[in-house]
Design a protein around this nucleic acid. Structure first.
Lengths: 332, 332
DNA sequence: GAAAATCCGGAACACGTTTTCCTGGACGAA
DNA sequence: TTCGTCCAGGAAAACGTGTTCCGGATTTTC
């Protein structure tokens, strides 16, 4: 008796135990073909008894699909890619698909390497995501691709992006609805598209209530604190500040408190990102814009599944943001 | 002429173009078997010309391996799992292995589902990780498994964990070496093993310099701020505070500053985690303990590769932490 | 009771690669 | 010349599954 009997049981073992052929066992387990109910049950019990788990490698080979999709991210250390990843993984696992993770660390060589690897694995599709909202070069593979967060520069590619304009505008409108009349904006580097978009949207929505010019700096608490000094010197009567990120907003709140200005009684503040460790730890907690990145990941994955299934939806899908209101605008 | 000529070229196409058999082509491309150098080169050129990429599904079936490992995480939203994931992915990709991501979201049903899926994919190995340092139930699969961060309750399983004791002790010794004589400790819930360990290690290392009792609370800035009030009432002459997390330490610093106590001149403060968004944004920046989780992920992956290769290393591997010194203990 | 329709299950092949075994030829030694 | 050795490469099997086709058995219909 050869010792190879310890290998995991295959469909042939199940078939043998049930007294049928391998093909019949396959049909029984997949609810296909014409089989007597009794036979089906017999095969099922045999599979159960042996603890049979079908080998998806065989299935992949036979079906021409791999039931796997690749996720290429230029930086998963960033806090944007993570929720997208999770959302995608969530949507895919519901469809019995697996997600293989590829973090290029912004290295084009690594990206090439990963692409080769994914093509070699005959992945059913690829999701490409990055940490910036700037469009990126499309990748060149004979496989369905969907871009998330960072769209492809080719408008015919399928991309899912955040409505950054709408998000910033909703914060400004919220402040207007609360009766604020002098709204300023503090945000990140002007070289960042998202900073530009949010600034433009804020000015557009606030109209004549907007005061001064957008203050561009960096995405940090320190800049938020410093910006308050700059701003109060130029616009002493400002009564609301919308910020390009929760980090900036937290810095703004800290500095205002140090100066004895009450938030929101004297000056209301809004953030952006709904990054809980910032938005909730801030004093007071921040009204902020949630980009709903996990939902974006889910939508991206579902779109990719559609493409794989043969009904592609070309162009950019722009997902709405959600305004989260907290004490930094509403008070207690 | 059938239109199926548009499918991606297989090894048989390469072989045909090079004028050899499929098996010869395989040998040529894999540098195995006995072939003339000229033949090898001819096959290589043919492969190049056709843009041939081997189908790893076929390879997987033939070799009995899948060149894939699964990563099961009970929560990838936590900031502990992420660096571990990235480190593991880094180490694995160097070995031409792919990582499939499974986030159970702490749901046992999802975990079962994922395990089935991974077994079905005939994954070469599995990494299990969690967000707490408490040991967890081992998983039951006929596949090599290595546990990261959260060890298995079975001491014979392979686990890679952080030297929490050493990390906390190193912070205390650092303070002693700076001449501090009254060291207090503020940390998270007593129900958390990591809080207990770090408290015990701090007391053990500080010896007679330790004052009062460890203050257990929660992993938040708010608790850090509140703890300062509690602590100063009981121990007004304290000159150093080690904290169980960077969040707590940041809260401690904020409150001390509000009370007009200088950090580190009056009271030195240390954190834990080296979570840059906390440790660097804190005023002053925090001296803290880095658990080097990315390295832990890499080590875990390499250990798993060893197990797969047939040379398992059983038991717990305890990795050292690294003390990062900054202004919160050293001053400017 | 015979012909037709229906149902059930098996044999064979396909998927793409690796690997084992084998053959035919070239070459050196006796 | 003949035998043995070595080399280059081909044929076939193997991996595990899904699917197509086909024949035999059972039931239905007139």
């Amino acid at each position: 008796m050869p010792s190879r009997s310890i290998r995991t049981p295959g469909i042939k073992d199940v078939a043998a135990l049930a007294g049928v052929s391998a093909s019949t066992a396959s049909k029984a387990l997949n609810d296909t073909g014409q089989l007597r109910a009794a036979t089906r049950e017999r095969v099922r019990q045999a599979a159960e008894q042996l603890g049979f788990t079908p080998d998806s490698r065989g299935r992949a080979l036979a079906s021409g699909r791999s039931f796997t999709v690749g996720l290429i991210t230029t930086d998963s250390s960033g806090r944007f890619s993570i929720p997208i990843m999770l959302g995608a993984e969530d949507a895919l696992s519901a469809g019995e698909m697996a997600l293989v993770l590829c973090d290029t660390r912004d290295d084009p060589l690594r990206e090439q390497h990963y692409l080769k690897s994914l093509v070699s694995r005959r992945v059913d599709g690829i999701i490409v995501t990055g940490r910036r909202t700037e469009a990126r070069e499309p990748i060149d593979v004979p496989i369905p691709v969907v871009y998330a967060f960072s769209p492809s520069t080719d408008p015919d590619d399928t991309s899912v992006i955040v409505d950054d304009h709408g998000g910033a505008a909703s914060a400004a409108r919220h402040l207007l609805s609360l009766g604020r009349e002098q709204i300023a904006h503090v945000t990140g580097p002007e070289s960042h598209l998202s900073a530009q978009i949010r600034a433009a949207a804020t000015m557009g929505a606030a109209r004549e209530a907007f005061v001064g010019q957008p203050l561009y700096g960096e995405w940090s608490e320190r800049w938020g604190r410093h910006a308050v000094d700059v701003l109060l010197r130029a616009q002493p009567t400002v009564d609301a500040i919308t910020c390009g990120s929760d980090q900036i907003a937290r810095g703004v709140c800290d500095r205002l408190r140090e100066l004895g200005r009450s938030v929101p009684d004297d000056i209301a503040v809004t953030g952006y990102d709904n990054w809980s460790v910032m938005a909730l730890a801030s004093r007071p907690p921040l009204t902020t814009v949630d980009m709903e990145l996990e939902e974006l990941g889910r939508r991206t994955a579902n779109l990719l599944l559609d493409v794989i299934a043969g009904s592609p939806r070309r162009g950019q899908l722009i997902l709405p943001t959600r305004l989260i209101t907290r004490e930094s605008t509403l008070g207690t």
